[in-house]
Structure formats: C-alpha cells, structure tokens
C-alpha cells in the first residue's frame, strides 16, 4: 500500500522571548491515497506547523515525512509541484480580480484554467459571476471558494487545507464540505484541519490533536465507538442551576453543557432514578434524561481529561 502522506516522529519546537513551545511532539501517522483525512484540534494544537512541514515550507526539528513518496526535506521541489496548499490566512492577491488570480496561479504551475477545468468546474461556476471583481472585495465564503480553486488549478495529487472553515458561518461551511466530498470522488487525497468538532464526521479518518500530540487516530465511527462510558443527555428549563446541582451529586463522574442538553457520565451505572429523585428534591421540574451516543466532541473532551 502506498501512502499519500507518511509522518514519522515529527518534532518541532519554537523558542522565543516568552518561552519554549513544543508545537509537535513526535507525531506519527499515515494517510492513504484518496482519503479525506481530518486533523481536528483547537488553535495552538500544532495543526499549522504540521501542514507547513508537509508542504515543505517549514523544517522539522526531528523525524521524517514523505508526501506522495517524496521526502519533505530533500525532494521539496517535487512535492511543491504535486501538492495544492491553502494556508489558514486568506492567501490571494486582494488587488487582483478573481480571474487574474486564477490565471496567475495557473501560470505559476505552468497550466491553464481550461486544462483542468473539469476539476474546478463545480466551484468555478459559483464564483464565475464575480470574475471581474477584486478578490479583496469578495465575501468570506467566496474567498474560500476562490482560494480552493487556485489550490486545485494544477490538479494536485494531495491537497492541504489549513482551517479552511475557521470564522466561516455554518451555511458556507456546509457548502465547503460538500465540495470537498466531490473532490475526493475525483481521487484527490485531502488533508484538512479544523477546530470545529462537528466537521469530524465528514472525514474518512481523523486525528484528534492537542498540545502537539495525537490523542487518537481512527475513523470517526471507531473513535465514537471507543468512548468508554455510557453517556446521558439531560435537560431542564433551568439549565445552569441543573448543571451546578448535578456537579454536586455524588455519583457524577462528569457533566458539561452540550447544546441544549447537558452531557452526563455516572461513576457507576443504574443511578438514573436516584439522580432524578435527587433533582426533584432540589425543585427541578420537567427534567428530561435519556441515553445518547457520544459525539466526536465528547470523545475529545474525554481524551483531554
């Protein structure tokens, strides 16, 4: 089996006036060819450092990595011509129009928009009405689409997307992920990072990453299945008081807010009725308690403990 990306004990440390940061601590993983792989973790987890190392713009302090079979240190030229990269910051020329940006990137990679039109068609038709507009004047969602178009223009074998949906509203985010799914069907390997846990389930496999270490790496389904406790959702009209009272309950292992519900893990099983009784004594009304399946976010919280 050929891996699209292979990472072995990659290590990166930053030293500055304010101290030493271990951005990546001996990270190892592999991404299969044609896979949609997600790096899920909050800001400062090390996602951007890892992406920069893999796209050869940053050197690791230790370890080895290959992209499309090429070593990131010695064969950086080869990698640069076969990957697409969309950094976290918006990286297009604000004072060029949409069309000029596309042509510029096409020329940069020695190709034309027409040559790989099939690949970007889906996305391009959405931004085509604005092609005479300057990139700086585009909306957030449109900028995202244009950046993706530019990253795809040379039909890369591996696509690196660093937090493409950060700060983007839920609707645009949903559209963006649908585009990624379609790209995947065209056989492109995609590595995407995101701080939004709810996007994890849209990936084939994910790595949960925090403080420069991988907490868990598997398919979202398997990560969810490996959640070690039975999980309950509970709610009442006075949700904050409910949270405080449940924290005071002796058989609570952990309880935290989760959307409109609280998520609850008991120390020992079969205390549901006892808890409801306890809460009734505290004057809680209309309490709803039900068992639920864990989400990736629950798993992340569990792994952070």
């Amino acid at each position: 089996m050929n891996y699209a990306v292979e990472v072995e004990n990659i290590r990166k440390t930053y030293t500055s006036e304010i101290g030493t940061t271990h951005a990546l601590q001996d990270i190892s993983f592999a991404v299969n060819s044609g896979e949609l792989f997600g790096l899920i973790g909050p800001d400062g987890a090390g996602k951007t450092s890892l992406f920069r190392i893999l796209t050869t713009v940053l050197l690791a302090d230790g370890g080895k990595a290959t992209v499309n079979g090429f070593d990131v240190v010695n064969k950086y030229r080869e990698i640069r011509s076969c990957v697409g990269y969309m950094p976290g910051k918006f990286s297009l020329y604000q004072d060029l129009t949409v069309e000029e940006n596309l042509n510029f990137f096409a020329t940069l990679f020695g190709t034309t928009l027409e040559a790989n039109y099939e690949l970007v068609k889906d996305i391009y038709i959405q931004i085509e009405p604005f092609k005479k507009r300057r990139a700086g004047k585009l909306s957030g969602g449109m900028k995202q689409k244009l950046a993706l178009c530019c990253a795809l223009i040379h039909k890369p074998a591996v696509l690196f997307l660093d937090e493409p949906t950060t700060g983007v509203d839920p609707v645009s985010r949903k559209e963006f992920w649908e585009m990624l799914k379609r790209l995947k069907q065209q056989g492109i390997t995609i590595l995407v990072s995101t701080p939004y846990m709810d996007e994890a389930t849209l990936c084939d496999r994910i790595a949960l990453i925090q403080h420069g270490t991988i907490l868990s790496i598997d398919t979202p389904q398997k990560i969810i299945a490996s959640f070690p406790h039975p999980l309950y959702a509970i709610k009442s009209p006075e949700i904050y008081r409910l949270l405080k009272d449940i924290h005071a309950y002796e058989n609570t292992l952990s309880c935290y807010a989760f959307g409109e519900y609280l998520h609850l893990i008991f120390k020992e099983e079969n205390h549901n009725d006892e808890l409801l009784h306890f809460l009734t004594n505290k004057n809680h009304e209309q309490v709803v308690l039900k068992p639920i399946e864990a989400s990736i976010e629950d798993c992340f919280i569990e792994l952070l403990k």
Partner: peptide, 16 residues
C-alpha cells in the same frame, strides 16, 4: 465578538 473561536472544547465550556 466570537469569544471562543478556535478554543478547545473543555475550555469553551469553562468559558460559558
């Protein structure tokens, strides 16, 4: 204004 963007889920809850 978007106080919790990019913050990890545990800290996000502590923030709330």
């Amino acid at each position: 204004d978007e106080p919790t963007g990019g913050v990890d889920p545990v800290t996000r809850r502590q923030f709330w």
